[in-house]
Design a protein around this nucleic acid. Structure first.
Lengths: 339, 339
DNA sequence: TTGAAAGCGGTACCAG
DNA sequence: CTGGTACCGCTTTCAA
């Protein structure tokens, strides 16, 4: 795009060698203040911008970050992407997005693709189907920086960014119990992924703290995280086919929350009278739902930002990093009373 | 990422010259079937992948597409991005996203940034602030392929992808009128952008066809497309401070629709009794809003796909393209009756 | 402090 | 049909 001026042009114009110009532009090194001035001036005047491709070829760094996540238009991930871009843009990295659509197969293919594109590092949120993580282990062991976010794994030692899933889940269930509900069900994602376990833990803890114990079948898993509509339909049908159907549901993710509400409507189940719903969601205005929805909101933008900062730190670290951190961001319960 | 095998490695291993290997790999040209076989086999066996950076440097093509839009986490644009990625991924282009956040200033900066990254082409949806489009004209005249989508301009002759905004607007307003509403207001975005004009046109036409003429002040513009919360608050306050407040509102975009509902709630204005709302939105399940929202849905994924296909076609065209098309995708009115 | 030159991985032209 | 080589734009050693 556009015919740009190169180092050679500058050298020719100023009657110097390429290397001198190159050095002058990078600041550093041994170079006389005079020539540096001259070069900088000329460069600015002619709007010189280094050719990134040439730099890449030389440095073997692509200044790109690969992102693996399940779905771009999911409101949670869309916000995460926003956070990622906000950092990457300023640090002159570009971001290559790939979506697994909750398929292990696709996750593998995407990883392959990103490897080929020679990204400098990876931001990864695992698919619901993923159990074996040796594909990531391979790259990680080969020295490729990886930061996991949201759906993480304990089997690879690197930076991780998550929200306080257990805490958020606890708060939501505690709220439902506080509203007098005792038969609180939980519709959640695949048991494979970390967030499912942690949110379940919060649910269990809150139930216990209210001396409640969920009936068998009160915990419904959607293997594909609600990506497949039938999953949710089935979950709802099972719950309301029970002898003692729930009087509240705690939903574990954005997509599941929205789909649960839709499915309940379709069946004419009254909310909040018959069943009260609260769950994870990052939709901007859940107060316009019917009834207004109490949600656990995740700092998605923040998560994207933090993960990207950590990744770039890893990429640009001079010495191999051996000590890793797990950032836990707070989840926020936003209570929206019925009208 | 990873230590890859190069053409030189293959050449060395097979005792041929670089050029022979290169030719063999590209298929074409004059090369004996035997050597081609040998090379291909070796390459496959050792998982050879051409170095994209080197190819870029040589070919002066980056195989990247720059995208300019207003906001990533907006549900409409998030779906568009999904469509863009779906095509780009398969054609081995990568996508660089930038957001204007409805600022002309930022749009300029982003364009600069993308130019520097030497993208092969641009997908552009203008910011609400943009009036002067000479920055795009400059690049377009320099031969950079551009495809405009959604918020387009007539001042640059190139491919464009839009939805039938006037038609969608007409349908929505016609629906409201059909429900017996006569005082139908319109909250819309900045008058600068194409979609505002077209949706207004549909509104006017539908009003006229029902022998309705909007009171002065029934058309409220949000200069920043509802990005700034106060804009909407003011619009609502103006509408309901009038002697004859509206009994229906047609909203012109996703963000405006959601914010309008939220603002009406906040003020305790009853829907649909006091005022009935219908508008553009790509939220997945507006039936869970209160009341269920009748929406004009745009084929956003399709739009992203189509725009990207057209762009890649431009980029890869051997001869300069001189005849351009404007694809108009249908908008779909989805009626959701009150419960 | 500056210049010359090699090389990153591919491509394409020119000989042979 | 195949080999040699220059070159894309930049960085970096080695000499001067």
């Amino acid at each position: 795009m556009g015919e740009a001026i190169t180092i050679k042009d500058i050298a020719k114009a100023l009657g110097m060698s390429y290397s001198t110009v190159s050095r002058a532009l990078k600041g550093s090194y041994q170079i006389s203040e005079a020539t540096r001035q001259k070069v900088k001036e000329y460069a600015d005047a002619h709007r010189y911008r280094p050719n990134l491709v040439a730099q890449s070829l030389k440095s073997k760094k692509s200044r790109s970050i690969g992102v693996l996540l399940c779905s771009i238009p999911n409101s949670f991930f869309a916000e995460v992407i926003n956070g990622i871009e906000s950092i990457a843009y300023n640090q002159d990295y570009h971001v290559i997005l790939t979506q697994s659509l909750e398929s292990y197969e696709r996750e593998l293919k995407n990883l392959e693709h990103l490897a080929w594109r020679s990204v400098d590092g990876l931001l990864v949120s695992l698919s619901t189907e993923t159990i074996d993580i040796s594909h990531f282990k391979k790259w990680h062991d080969a020295g490729v920086p990886i930061v996991f976010f949201d759906r993480i794994t304990d089997l690879i030692d690197t930076h991780k960014v998550v929200v306080d899933n257990a805490g958020g889940a606890f708060d939501a269930v505690h709220y439902l119990a506080g509203m007098g509900r005792r038969k609180i069900a939980h519709i959640t994602s695949s048991p494979n992924i970390s967030i499912t376990k942690e949110r379940l833990e919060g649910y269990n803890k809150a139930m216990a703290s209210h001396q409640l114990s969920p009936a068998p079948g009160y915990i419904q898993y959607c293997q594909h995280g609600g990506m497949i509509p039938e999953e949710l339909e089935q979950a709802i049908d099972k719950l309301f086919g029970m002898e003692e159907p729930p009087d509240a549901i705690f939903t574990a993710s954005d997509r599941i929350t929205i789909s649960t509400l839709a499915a309940l409507y379709k069946r004419g189940i009254q909310m909040p009278e018959q069943v009260m719903v609260a769950g994870f969601s990052n939709f901007s205005s859940p107060e316009i739902f019917c009834p207004p929805l109490t949600t656990v909101r995740q700092p998605a933008f923040e998560m994207g930002k933090t993960a990207t900062e950590l990744l770039i730190q890893l990429i640009e670290s001079k010495r191999p990093v051996t000590s890793f951190e797990k950032r836990v961001l707070p989840a926020e319960l936003i209570i929206r009373p019925a009208r």
